[in-house]
Design a protein around this nucleic acid. Structure first.
Lengths: 208, 208
DNA sequence: GTCTATATCATGATAGAC
DNA sequence: GTCTATCATGATATAGAC
């Protein structure tokens, strides 16, 4: 009980730290984030913060790992199912748009950190268990093309276009809102219908 | 001549500084960049660097201003011409893809810094002279819709989709290369044909 | 304009009491 | 586990000689 309480307290504290760190790293990136700010936001002091995570790097790794999994675990999940192609793409777009709706900062964070250190990322993506393996998807597309059911398009470009249409509006959100004078609620409304619109676009793109 | 030489030397030095700063800020962002590194890269010392740009912020503003102009001046340029809609979109995509090909880091830089400080950006975009005004374009689209020449699509979404397809592959370049195992030359080759592919996609999207 | 040396300050990290 | 106090470093910025 004494021990149990302590463990529980410790877990709670660690959760608070990770959540505070997530928010701040996502918003400001690795170099922009301050350990002091994370400690304040988690309502503890720097000493304790370093007790849980010895270095800023360690804490960052924790946060980035979670974000990485959110971004690529999903992809693997949708892509490695054995749904027929149209349903698979629909599922992919659906899950992605849902995650993005609740994690606005996620893509900018992952993509800019990834840009800051591409080599590390490549190592990571090849070591992680849930690595998105695109071959099954690519083969499926080729089979559909061979059967004449879709247009002859490079499968890599299908993935590229689909992701662009899903993710970019979030990456460039402040830009779009500024140049087109869109309020926050209005933006959210635009994104609600987007799921269907993207699927329709992809469908048109693949029509033979 | 003494004076002329000095002025010229000064200009050369400033150019070297700005170019070095551009490369480093683009790659590492504001907080990731170090004044020491910029000085080294420009082959001068920190003292002289601060002689030309009193603060890191001032230097950053210079660099960001140029990037901003590259990214949005173009947009304004293409959008405020009085070409008919299909040609206008073609021009827009064409110019954009060319700029991106030679400025790979540009969009991640602008977008992530913009995300770091959206308010400042909004102020900037409303004050800068070359501000991209989208109204003429939007009106043009509405006219085309009214005339039944294109499908009834929200003009803001046309812009959003077009930009997504152009810019996102560069923003997510390391990701795409990693998950699809694409080499640098291969990526560049993929991007070469992309201009036409994007235009075709937009065309299909607008077909009544 | 250019350099060296230095001031100043903020930040990540540690030590040690409770 | 949690806190306070402190260290050590590294980064921006300035002063002043040439």
């Amino acid at each position: 009980m004494g021990k149990n309480n302590m463990v529980k307290k410790g877990e709670q504290t660690e959760e608070k730290i990770v959540e505070a760190a997530r928010a701040i790293f996502h918003e400001k990136g690795f170099h922009g984030a301050r350990m002091q700010e994370i400690a304040d936001s988690a309502e503890i002091n720097k000493g304790l913060l370093h007790y849980y995570f010895k270095t800023k790097d360690a804490l960052f790794e924790k946060v980035f790992g979670i974000a990485f999994h959110k971004m690529f675990g999903i992809m693997a999940n949708a892509m490695n199912s054995d749904l027929p192609l149209p349903e698979k793409l629909e599922k992919f777009v659906g899950i992605y748009m849902d995650v993005l709706a609740y994690n606005s900062f996620l893509p900018v964070f992952v993509l800019s950190e990834l840009n800051r250190n591409p080599d590390k990322f490549i190592r990571k993506i090849f070591s992680v268990s849930g690595r998105p393996n695109m071959e099954p998807f690519f083969n499926q597309v080729k089979a559909e093309i061979a059967a004449g059911r879709i247009k002859d398009v490079d499968p890599r470009k299908i993935l590229m276009n689909t992701m662009s249409l899903c993710v970019f509006p979030y990456v460039a959100r402040p830009m779009f809102q500024a140049i087109m004078n869109i309020s926050n609620p209005e933006f959210k409304k635009m994104m609600q219908n987007r799921k269907e619109e993207v699927i329709e676009l992809i469908t048109v793109m693949l029509k033979p």
